[in-house]
Amino acid sequence: MIFTVATFAILVTISLGLARALMGPTVYDRILAVNMVGTKTVLLIAVFAVLSGRTNMIDIALTYALINLVGVVAVLKFVEQGNFYTDGEDD
């Protein structure tokens, strides 16, 4: 029961984030939304794993949380190099 509520809430949040990712208006809004969707997906997988009793599935959420870190480091590296993104607003 509570898991249904939790799953539903996470899906609603993901859809709100997805809407922001599609609407923009700036590139940074989109990246922000993607970040949020990423965190929420980790939580969704964790909730689903505990809900269905297949706790092995938590490993996937863990992997993604770690990969997230790698992704952040990659983004940071490009920020440091300065050739990552230099325009202001798009659309």
Binding site: T41, L44, M57, T63, Y64
Partner: peptide, 29 residues
């Protein structure tokens, strides 16, 4: 990367842990 994440979520729901693993690590990461 959002697309890969959603696919990984789908694989988890379908109980395909190994594919979801690969998708999260390779596809999204």
């Amino acid at each position: 990367s959002i697309f890969s994440l959603h696919s990984a979520g789908l694989f988890v729901v379908m109980d395909a842990a190994d594919v979801a693993f690969t998708e999260a690590a390779v596809g999204a990461g």
